[in-house]
Design a protein around this nucleic acid. Structure first.
Lengths: 192, 192
DNA sequence: TAAGGCGGAATGAACGTTCATTCTGATACT
DNA sequence: AGTATCAGAATGAACGTTCATTCCGCCTTA
């Protein structure tokens, strides 16, 4: 096993444990056991536990961005592209609730500072911001700052799924893709 | 100072400290200092720290519910009533970011179990669910479960303000009440 | 090819700190 | 005086981090 593999192994173990037990209930000793290494070894790859958490966060956001942008056709219409991103987001969070939970946990952790959050979102924003800009030019989207609309929709979807995780209700079976898009577009679409 | 005053004092102190430093950075000793009492005294009022946190959560949700339902006119139209609730929510979270932050912190804390969360939301739900039901009957609202629409809007607003707290941008100045309602209604409103 | 040695990687017991909780003696009230 | 309440020191468990030691693969040399 080479250097990077072991590093990845530690990050993966940390992901698993935090998703299962929460952030403050996963001591380094537990990560070490899960990663089949000594506690000291972890400190060969990460200066502090905080740095490990930061890396976990960035790794997760990378996966998250990949999932959202999967199969995006940059030549398609704005509407089709946003549909794709939103459905990807929705499906990913439904199918990998572990990651969604992790994201919730980490986004309020003190280790995840503002700048790091920016870094995590960067790749996604670079793709989506121009999309909103185009939609706006085409008169398709409300005259409200793109960030506001984008964050609102993201917050709606993620909160919907978080609520369902906390108290499993009918969301997974009753909310069709069509319904979801109807809500999302309703929120941002310009009407006349 | 009577018994309840001291209890309230401890809860208030805990609120202040968690809002300022985060949950896991506020030890009991610090709460004791802030509340001007000994650490042991806190254990006269709360069995464990976890129970204290639970009480903080319920107190907070009570304040939150009050704020959202303030001035609600039950004889007004569904549209007017929902406007009132949403604007109350938005203004409260903008004007008392401390409470909004606290709510974020606590809603992912392991101490806040599913049942407790239900209890915290109960009063709000009891008022709002019938509102959605009426709106649905009047053909005003999408044929999508009320919970889904309600949670989506709540999630959108709260995430919007959380994002702004993390990296202060233009939300407070640029998003007018009118814009916000346009987004919220767009998300739930039935169109034909 | 075999033996010896070298250096980075890994280990996990030990350390110091922090924290929730308990204990104890003092204080205020009746 | 007796009871209830308090403050804060004491306690012990749990944690992040360190470090002396061990391990292991590779290179050198004969």
């Amino acid at each position: 096993m080479n250097k990077m593999d072991k590093r990845e192994l530690i990050i993966t173990a940390t992901c698993d444990l935090i998703a299962e037990n929460g952030l403050q209930a996963t001591p380094i000793s537990m990560v070490a056991k899960e990663a089949c290494c000594g506690a000291g070894t972890i400190y060969r790859y990460f200066e502090t536990k905080e740095e490990l958490i930061e890396d976990v966060y960035l790794t997760l956001m990378e996966r998250f961005s990949d999932a959202c942008l999967k199969g995006l056709d940059e030549n398609a219409s704005v509407r089709e592209q946003l549909n794709s991103v939103w459905l990807n987001l929705y499906h990913y969070m439904r199918e990998v609730p572990r990651d969604a939970l992790l994201l919730d946990q980490l986004s309020v952790a003190p280790a995840i500072r503002g700048e790091l959050q920016e870094q995590g979102k960067r790749r996604l924003k670079e793709k989506i911001d121009p999309l909103f800009a185009r939609g706006r030019e085409e008169g398709l989207i409300k005259d409200i700052p793109d960030d506001v609309l984008g964050v609102f929709v993201y917050g709606g979807i993620s909160t919907l799924l978080r609520t369902d995780r906390n108290a499993p209700c009918a969301v997974p079976t009753e909310v069709t893709d069509e319904m979801l898009l109807s809500i999302c577009w309703g929120a941002i679409e310009k009407r006349d």
